[in-house]
């Protein structure tokens, strides 16, 4: 191999590359096609999380955001101590989970009802109902959230209507309050939950429900004993999504309530106080707590679905 052959090698190497690609077995080719996706997930997801984990074990530093190369569990100890002493972090973490549970409960019930209505509807009504789910989904959650302020504030539309009809004697402060945060967050997650349940219902056979009715089941009973168990995979997805996103909610509690959630607190730690190890440790702890809660939720819902297995 002399140096003179190196120039025309470029096109031949391209051709040989193509040939070798063509000659690959289908599994190698599949791997090559998946390679960019795998590389992306490694570089932008897996490695960043390893770095987060690493920073959570770094020593806090006064002049840098953390002490490079140091190992310490100080950040974890501080976070756990603070939670167990029922101080600020306890209220932050417990409020986040309370919001998550409240939003999930409301969302799953509403989503099941709405998905059922979409499933039963036909023609124009069905299109309209689907449109009403897809449109908010495609709108930024900042918009979805702030629109509730003129509606729910003490001098807002809802209070005006309730006052003028005489249902209320004095205005109620829906925002800022926890109720406001729950309403705003339900609005954010409801479209996803409805679609998750609807996509399962859409594959279901209506005749099974009819059969239950013919056998004398009332409508609510036919829904509870036939529709709900069959829709359980969708309900589980809806519940997990609602819960995960609501525990980590940022915009709705930030705008519609005065309580501090985990997301708002960690932003303060990171951008305000520059306490990277603490922010990282708190994030890791929250992720673990969420993982445990979701696993429990999964187990409970699965058992509930399993009892009525009609499929």
């Amino acid at each position: 191999m002399s140096e003179t052959t190196s120039l025309p090698q470029i096109p031949t190497s391209l051709a040989s590359l193509r040939e070798s690609f063509a000659g690959q077995s289908s599994s190698t080719r599949a791997l090559l096609l998946m390679a960019p996706l795998i590389a992306f997930e490694l570089l932008v997801f897996v490695i960043p999380f390893l770095i987060l984990l690493r920073i959570s074990f770094a020593e806090p530093s006064s002049d840098l955001i953390y002490e490079p190369g140091s190992w310490s569990v100080e950040a974890y100890a501080a976070v756990v101590d603070n939670i167990l002493a029922f101080e600020l972090l306890w209220s932050v973490v417990s409020y986040s989970f309370l919001l998550g549970v409240a939003v999930t409960a409301v969302t799953v019930v509403l989503a099941l009802f709405y998905a059922y209505a979409i499933w039963r509807a036909t023609g124009l009504v069905k299109t309209l109902l689907l449109f009403s789910v897809v449109l908010p989904l495609l709108t930024t959650l900042v918009i979805r959230t702030y629109a509730f302020t003129p509606l729910l504030s003490p001098s807002g539309t809802v209070n005006d209507i309730l006052l003028s009809t005489g249902l209320l004697s004095e205005s109620v402060q829906f925002v800022p309050s926890m109720a406001g945060a729950v309403i705003g967050q339900v609005y954010i997650v409801l479209p996803y939950a409805v679609l998750a349940i609807y996509s399962v219902l859409a594959t279901m056979d209506w005749h099974v429900v009819e059969a239950a009715r013919d056998l004398g089941a009332s409508r609510p009973r036919s829904v509870a004993e036939v529709v709900v168990p069959q829709a359980m995979p969708g309900i589980i997805v809806a519940a997990v999504i609602s819960f995960a996103w609501s525990v980590g909610a940022y915009a709705a509690p930030g705008l519609l309530s005065e309580n501090i959630t985990f997301a708002l607190h960690v932003e303060e730690l990171l951008l305000g106080d520059l306490r990277y190890p603490t922010a990282a440790a708190l994030s890791v702890i929250m992720l673990l707590l969420m993982l445990v809660s979701v696993s429990i939720m999964f187990a409970v819902l699965n058992r509930f679905g399993g009892d009525f297995d009609l499929a």
């Binding site: 960043p48 987060l52 995960a244 996103w245 980590g248 940022y250 990277y276 990282a280 929250m286």
Partner: peptide, 17 residues
């Protein structure tokens, strides 16, 4: 998985990265 992780945690992680 990234869809199921609160965006705040993803935001923090990527900011540090």
């Amino acid at each position: 998985i990234p869809l199921l992780i609160p965006p705040v945690i993803l935001g923090i992680t990527l900011l540090m990265y």
